[in-house]
Write a protein that binds this DNA or RNA. Structure first.
Lengths: 262, 262
DNA sequence: CGCCATATTTCGCATTGTGAAATCGATTGC
DNA sequence: GCAATCGATTTCACAATGCGAAATATGGCG
């Protein structure tokens, strides 16, 4: 080992993420690469995307296939069915989703718009589940996808429930990137706005994440008062109604009540 | 290399699957181990389950955590949120699920029982999606879970649509394990029964997978006549009604009609 | 306060995964 | 129909990578 006079070939180009086991990092990058594309992807593209030698990518994918993490269609790769199983087993929040589902569907049927269930994960909200209405135009988030706190209704409430310092730190840390011309990008304004939302007990998202989309969000607490999740309605902004606020609050209350403390 | 007087430590206990990359196999076994348990699991248990040395399991889990595949709660491990994302992105069948969802919900509302969407995967059916009724007692399959073909209504139809030889080979290959006292365990009887199901255009499952549970299953075909999926109703056996057969067939037809060929 | 049971870290070793290059196979153009 | 081309697989020699025994931290309990 003392040898290695060779110009340490390891770091490669991409730099990529710091992980402790090379193969697992690479596997993750590959899976991520497959997930990014809508349709099955060729080896060539995957290898290039991941910054790997084709033969290396091939070997790793072959191993992934044997384990059901990846499947192939001809010579194109797609995510394997085993991920479906694991995805539905992600244990945390499992009971939450179970509890929430019927309530969300009931609300959706009442108002005819998309209802989302989210949780905080670092500086983002993650979409845990949703109930979609059957109409041509609707707002649809992919389960598992993420969005920054400051451009979502629920996220702003989560920011507001922490201390003002936390909120300011979030602002510094992320630089408050703007997504539309309505996004908050100024720390002072955000802090102000956010505390108003908390006082009101709900938050709007006025086209802050995507132009044309308006949301209403509320928080779900457990018995101890801790934030458990967020519940929101997303709709084309011109269809949004203030009557929904109370319905949404009711749903959140029902969910809070029934929630297992865990 | 000539050394290693130790009794070739590689194959470990579990035997498990033969894969091409050791770490990936092990990672899979570990994830599977976490998924099997309802609650977060300790390192000790995981390592033992997977037949790995604790330090090895620890290292692999640490790498998995860095990549978001696993999360920890104290010193217990659970599946990471990234799996949620991937799970919802499993591309194959995505359009199918999307198409099927509203039809399944409509059927569920009409009959008040669980409606399942399944696809074949080797010698098993995999539960892709389901619509659950809101009642105390209901049948519930986890999304992504699997069951052998010969103990499910849809599975028997899938067996029947192949050649008789295929069915017999399946019987030999699997040995037709029995799950309840009603399961088919005899090759001859199965072949017989299965072809009857196909002729009828639907199949019952009379407590063959689980005592007390009865199902009705039909197949969904595409324009080319290929099997795309299976649709079934699962209910406590004494609540099952034959009127559902036509409703189920209607739903399958609607799904077949609307289905994108690929 | 000290004991036991887990979790985590260290470290030398050889097994494992690596990637360049060679082969295979299918498609395209001539 | 044949060569040329491009991508997917396989081979192979090498050393970097991941391995696991043992040592060390941590922490829960009597």
């Amino acid at each position: 080992m003392a040898k290695t006079p060779s110009p340490s070939p390891s770091p490669a180009g991409s730099g990529s993420s710091s992980g402790s086991i090379q193969v697992i990092d690479r596997l993750t990058v590959l899976l991520e690469g497959i997930a990014r594309h809508r349709d099955p992807v060729s080896l060539k593209v995957l290898a290039a995307d991941a910054g790997l030698h084709p033969s290396t990518a091939f070997r790793i994918l072959a191993a992934a296939i044997e384990n059901g993490l990846v499947a192939r269609e001809g010579s194109h790769y797609r995510l394997g069915i085993r991920l479906l199983q694991w995805g539905s087993r992600v244990a945390s929040h499992r009971d939450l989703r179970r509890e929430a589902r019927p309530l969300m569907e009931a609300l959706r049927d009442k108002i005819g718009e998309t209802v989302n269930l989210t949780v905080r994960q670092g500086d983002e909200v993650v979409y845990l589940d949703r109930a979609l209405p059957e109409r041509m135009m609707r707002v649809e988030q992919r389960i598992g996808s993420r969005a920054p706190l400051h451009v979502t209704a629920v996220g702003k409430l989560m920011l507001g429930e922490g201390s003002e310092t936390d909120c300011r730190e979030y602002a510094r840390r992320t630089g408050l990137p703007g997504y539309t011309r309505y996004s908050f990008t100024d720390e002072e304004q955000l802090v102000q706005h956010v505390s108003g939302c908390v006082r009101a007990g709900f938050a709007y998202d006025d086209e802050e994440a995507e132009t044309g989309v308006g949301c209403i969000g509320v928080l779900v607490h457990d018995d101890a008062g801790q934030i458990v999740a967020g519940l929101s309605i997303s709709a084309p902004i011109e269809r949004r109604r203030d009557e929904w606020i109370e319905l949404l609050k009711d749903t959140a209350r029902a969910l809070s009540a029934g929630s297992v403390t865990r």
